[in-house]
Design a protein around this nucleic acid. Structure first.
Lengths: 360, 360
DNA sequence: CTGAAAGCGCTAACAA
DNA sequence: TTGTTAGCGCTTTCAG
């Protein structure tokens, strides 16, 4: 620990009391502009940065109250985000961080109501995974207007004034899938994409990016079908059966949302498992057997845990260390295959080889 | 921040002074066994954990002095480890962490001498990347004997009594390469492995694992050659030229150490770039053009930055939060391809798409 | 507008 | 063997 300058020294240099220094440095009222400027100058020249330990000790209660609003559905995924947030917050507990955690149902208005409650409950920042970005946008704007920082994770509300978004770059996810796929299948192969609803920005972007990059990486490769499963297991499954029946020369399928299992089912049902290269998104326990038996060749993983960790770090670095917030923090997707499957958090409970304890 | 119990309350419960509580809880001399036990019991029942902010504030100087000994060679790689260590240490600075950083030349005795100096300079733990684990082992044992925790990163000293090792599981790295390769090439393909010296445990393990897994994943696949380049650019290059001349049907090469560029050179020289699937290890700036033009299909990345971060976290969690140290912390290797190349730290300086700021 | 002083939870030096 | 006390750097309250 390097001996750094403290408010005491600054007070001495500026020939004022430490109380005045504190007021000046924190924009609190009760200092003349003249002395304030003088003190700020000195602090800057001396490269002053506050001792966070002392601060949180002094304040006693939380220095930083955070609201966290995460969907209660698709738990295997969102719970990872929550774990990342909570783990990191606990790690930084001694800085006086307090988390107000509110899981919400993904559909209906609970999300909006919760957001409103949070805004009313004296938090300095909110981490949210908006299920309906459109509807959430006015509330986000209102929060930011009140000085509450809003950070979107996993899903973005791009037209809002949120301070930052942290997510896996959808274009990179889809491009990586396309690049892998192009290496997995021969030139001139036919490809299908399974998505949810093309109106959802993320899914549309991934579909486009995959299409474009696959054509780029695979000479004469073509996308013969884009299937919208409407985020419904049954519909996805059924449409995939049709697809397989109609496209006998299909070489691969890319599933750009969390419905890889339905597609794997369909492949298995039609005896095409292992014959058609399947690249899915994210990891869910039900996918494990399909990765193990080769039905799913690879999965592009958005690393929800790390997203949670990152969201906390962004906020803390900004609010406590006055670092700038990067408006977009894209993190690198991971490639899950059979060889590294058991090093991912999601599968750690299932079979836990001793000594393997990584999660980032 | 949840209101937790402090030594004051414990003192009251045990009907002693806070000084006694402090002594009892820290195994300092000057407390009778009876009172010590009583206090420890109370603390345990109350789930006491010390306020780290208060501690580091009180102690004033560093609470935790760490020695870090990292090779000065292969900088692009080891500097990442160092960055991870330093970034994380700075992040935890307010806990009173002080890092004594000593880069050393990889060859010669500097490593041993530096280790000895560190052991003499009052550090509580040492993070080391042993270049010569064999030679380092006695010193590690000596350090641990003195109560100095030693953590190996990247490279392990398995026969020493080091407290922990953090690295990418070599078996997983090689298996992942094999699995990818088996998907890249047709059944019955011929494969070559480029390594350094098979006597080095890590390289031998990777060679074995790749061989075994490739055979498993690729029906009728065979390893036709294992080349030892002795960690020498020139020799690796030359031997690869020979290989290419003699094996006209070679479908792929796996390079299990940091000499992928030499192999890429050879492929280019013989006009086989893009025809032979090349999977390398880690990322270096010189590799970037070869990844971009498809000569290198993929690279298995050990994530040195995260290794550094992890090493610090292990130590801090152990020494400051008295968590157990897991003897081996394997982290998940990453797959680097053209699509995600620019999201890795190593390449961030080269071309830096705005908004991409991930490094873990 | 500014200064003085108490106190956050802990360590460490000194007293008893 | 135990108790007491002075800070660590900061925030905050109360006086001036």
């Amino acid at each position: 620990m390097i001996r750094r300058i403290g408010i005491r020294q600054i007070a001495k240099l500026a020939d004022v009391s430490i109380g005045t220094v504190d007021r000046a440095l924190h924009g609190r009222p009760g200092v003349s502009e003249a002395t304030r400027n003088r003190i700020v100058q000195i602090a800057k020249r001396a490269d002053y940065s506050p001792n966070l330990a002392a601060r949180s000790l002094s304040v006693g209660r939380a220095t930083l109250r955070l609201g966290v609003c995460v969907p209660r559905t698709a738990r295997q995924f969102y719970d990872q985000v929550r774990d990342g947030i909570m783990d990191e917050a606990r790690h930084l507990e001694h800085l006086g961080i307090e988390v107000l955690y509110r899981p919400v149902d993904r559909f209906g208005s609970e999300e909006l109501e919760t957001m409103e409650q949070m805004m009313a409950s004296d938090v300095q920042a909110i981490i949210i995974i908006p299920a309906d970005p459109q509807a959430m946008t006015p509330l986000i704007n209102e929060a930011e207007g009140k000085g509450i920082r809003v950070i979107c994770a996993v899903s973005d509300a791009p037209n809002s004034s949120r301070s930052a978004t942290v997510c896996a770059d959808p274009v990179v996810c889809a491009s990586l899938a396309a690049e892998l796929m192009a290496r997995f299948v021969p030139a001139g192969s036919s490809m299908a994409i399974v998505t949810g609803v093309l109106q959802v920005e993320d899914q549309r972007n991934k579909t486009q990016a995959f299409t474009e990059r696959f054509r780029h990486f695979c000479p004469e490769g073509k996308i013969v079908r884009v299937i919208e499963g409407h985020e419904n297991d049954e519909e996805t499954f059924r449409k995939c059966l049709n697809l397989l029946d109609e496209e006998s020369s299909l070489a691969g399928i890319y599933v750009n949302l969390a419905f890889g299992v339905s597609v794997a089912h369909a492949l298995t049902a039609r005896g095409r498992a292992g014959k058609v290269a399947l690249i899915t998104s994210d990891i869910f326990p039900e996918m494990v057997p399909y990765i193990e038996n080769g039905t799913i060749a690879a999965s592009i993983y958005q690393r929800p845990y790390v997203q949670g960790v990152t969201a906390i770090r962004l906020i803390v670095n900004h609010m406590l260390r006055s670092r700038p917030i990067p408006p977009t923090h894209y993190l690198n997707p991971a490639v899950v295959m059979r060889s590294n499957l058991y090093l991912f958090r999601e599968t750690r409970q299932l079979t836990n080889p001793p000594g393997h304890s990584s999660h980032i």
